[in-house]
Design a protein around this nucleic acid. Sequence first.
DNA 1: TTGTGTGCAAAATGTTTGCAAATCA
DNA 2: TGATTTGCAAACATTTTGCACACAA
Lengths: 154, 154
Amino acid sequence: MNIPVARDKFRRFLTQKGLRVTNQRLAIFDAALAQTEHFTAERLLDFARAIDDSVSRATVYRTLPIMVESALLREVDIGTGEKYYHPNEEGSTTQVAQVVCLDCDKIFEISAPFMGWYGNTVSSKLGLTPVSQRLQVSARCDTLRLTGSCPRRN
Amino acid sequence: MNIPVARDKFRRFLTQKGLRVTNQRLAIFDAALAQTEHFTAERLLDFARAIDDSVSRATVYRTLPIMVESALLREVDIGTGEKYYHPNEEGSTTQVAQVVCLDCDKIFEISAPFMGWYGNTVSSKLGLTPVSQRLQVSARCDTLRLTGSCPRRN
DNA sequence: TTGTGTGCAAAATGTTTGCAAATCA
DNA sequence: TGATTTGCAAACATTTTGCACACAA
């Protein structure tokens, strides 16, 4: 999904929710959608400020949940204290797992269609209805271990 | 595994690591192992202080990673800002998933043996070696939704 | 005896919030 | 116009750390 189309979706989402379309929100949105890798709130602040230097940290933190709710952005919590975000691909109903390299700090997203089935099975046994699922694998880089340097590192 | 046996394992673990067996560490350990539900660092501090009131918050935070490394305790991060802990059952090589009820705040642990297979498969494709995996399902209570009250609540 | 472990309080981290001023509808 | 949104800085919550004293080996 290209950025102008996505931006339009976001504008519509805001309006429909009774929220205002502000320059800051658009700057933060554009900055977020331009990313190809996972990013944190702090890095998004930098990117957004490059577009509109009036953007503040508070507004980034206030805008992130809105973008996540609009389903144009996905939140990824890998248990490192800070949350990561990533633009959501089209047709985002697919379940994805994250493989996090402890050496590179890179996050790889892998489809894991069985997650939905597992969540349903297991939840219904407990009298619960699943809301969301996450599957994460932490791993170490083989190349780094064997050769002392990781091709993906920086 | 009963507590005296586990405590012995912990003493041996400390000694073997060149760490000292202190009253505080033992109090924190006993408090942790006595729990049947998941607990946070803060709650563990309370429990440990009931055994030895000289225990400080800092020591709890410093002891938790040691107990996790000894494999007698398991760390569970459900993405709520604070970490949860749980005594590890015997033969803890089994992979477990957590089902977290968003209504009860209860954490259920369910065996998920396929996790190991998935982690290996997916990691090796990326040239990585898996270190750990986690699978979590967030869910809502059916009974609460249907009847307005949850039998597990408090 | 001596170096590890401790309690305390302060720092660090990532995120949230109160408030007056700015701005979108 | 008037309610929403903003930036700023202070507040927050959890965890970590520096330091002087205590204590296990």
